[in-house]
């Protein structure tokens, strides 16, 4: 793991905090004095991954900047559930302009701060996957290309949830959405695998690109804090399960995100200047079935009959990530893949 690994302490750095940790090893979220950038009373659904991800990320940013973060938010769930007049849940300076322009607005804020020589104040742009990989993509790319001093965070829940779960450019293959219904010969989303914006961001050779999930809070905090050590355009892609859109149990939000990482479907890594510099190894290798089964958006892969070919295609994608990002120690890969493969065969025959 990229963050400082600490001497064995019960849960070590896997849990949020713990009394046994030294002060400098504590996560931001474990602190009673954390800033709660997104505070009580927001209207996110039960078990919302995005609400959690946003608080973790922005609190980390607030710690990194000494409480001098300005957030710019794209339209989307996060914006709607946090700021319905007359109430806002934000506790830091926050601006919402449009769906597709958050990176540019953030760049504008950054430009203003630079003009005013306020290099102590930092800017975070944030949005969901729709606002990032689709409608805001041009602005995002422009921000990257100009290397504006903005950390842009995409909270990826893999569809347009705010409008009722329609497919986005980040929707994975086979997933059911309101516009990729599980009917016909190719049920669910028949396209690719979702737009891989972290890789696209890397292609811009911006100083820092990273992925994270809400299942590893400390990693997410680390990535934010690491990002804040750079000037220029930075991109953080955070997987945030959506119980409503994914058809997962509200209590399973973190579990689902964890499985996304442990299957290899969502590689957790960081890159500097366009090169991957670290990847978080898989701790408990899991076949994709375990991930797919607990989400109703994939129910059609198992019922009425299993669609083995589709599942295998998803598995191949996960395996490819494992190889590409080195998510397992080299020696383990063959053995692990063999095991997973065997498990698959068993499931098929049973």
């Amino acid at each position: 793991m990229p963050y400082q690994s600490i001497k064995f302490i019960q849960t070590g750095s896997l849990a949020v905090g713990g009394r046994l940790l030294a002060e400098d090893q504590r996560s931001v979220q474990s602190g009673a004095q954390r800033s709660n950038s997104l505070t009580l009373g927001h209207r996110a659904c039960q078990g919302c991954g995005e609400a959690l991800g946003a608080r973790i990320a922005l609190d980390a940013c607030q710690r990194a900047t000494g409480g001098k973060t300005i957030a710019v938010n794209a339209t989307g769930c996060l914006e709607v559930f946090s700021t319905p007049y007359p109430e806002t849940s934000w506790q830091l300076p926050w601006l919402h302009s449009l769906f597709g322009n958050a990176p540019a607005v953030a760049a504008g804020v950054a430009a203003a701060l630079r003009a005013k020589s306020r290099d102590d104040v930092r800017v975070v742009g944030q949005g969901g996957d729709g606002g990032t990989v689709d409608i805001g993509f041009a602005c995002l790319s422009g921000m990257f290309e100009r290397n504006d001093d903005v950390l842009y965070i995409c909270y990826d829940n893999e569809a347009y949830m705010n409008t009722g779960v329609q497919r986005s450019g980040a929707t994975p293959y086979a997933a059911r959405t309101a516009t990729t219904e599980p009917v016909g010969p190719e049920p669910g989303n028949k396209f690719g695998q979702g737009k891989n914006v972290p890789m696209i961001a890397m292609a811009h050779e911006i100083p820092y690109v990273a992925t994270a999930t809400v299942s590893d809070l400390r990693d997410l905090e680390y990535k934010v804090e690491r990002a804040m050590e750079f000037r220029g355009a930075r991109y953080l892609h955070v997987l945030v399960p959506c119980p409503l859109g994914w058809g997962s149990a509200p209590e399973s939000t973190i579990e689902v995100a964890r499985l996304a990482t442990q299957t290899g479907l969502f590689p957790v890594f960081e890159a500097e200047d366009g090169e991957v510099v670290s990847a978080t190894p898989i701790r408990h290798r899991t076949g994709v079935r375990d991930y797919l089964r607990i989400q109703r958006r994939y129910a059609h892969l198992f019922k009425p009959a299993e669609r083995t070919e589709m599942i295998d295609r998803i598995q191949r994608g996960a395996d490819r990530n494992i190889t590409r990002f080195g998510l397992l120690p080299a020696d383990d890969i063959d053995a692990e893949l063999a095991t997973v493969g065997a498990g698959r065969a068993e499931e098929i025959t049973s």
Binding site: A107, G108, A111, G142
Partner: peptide, 12 residues
């Protein structure tokens, strides 16, 4: 993006 940058700058 131009107007969006102006929005951000002005708000800041």
């Amino acid at each position: 993006a131009a107007m969006s940058v102006a929005i951000g700058a002005s708000a800041a």
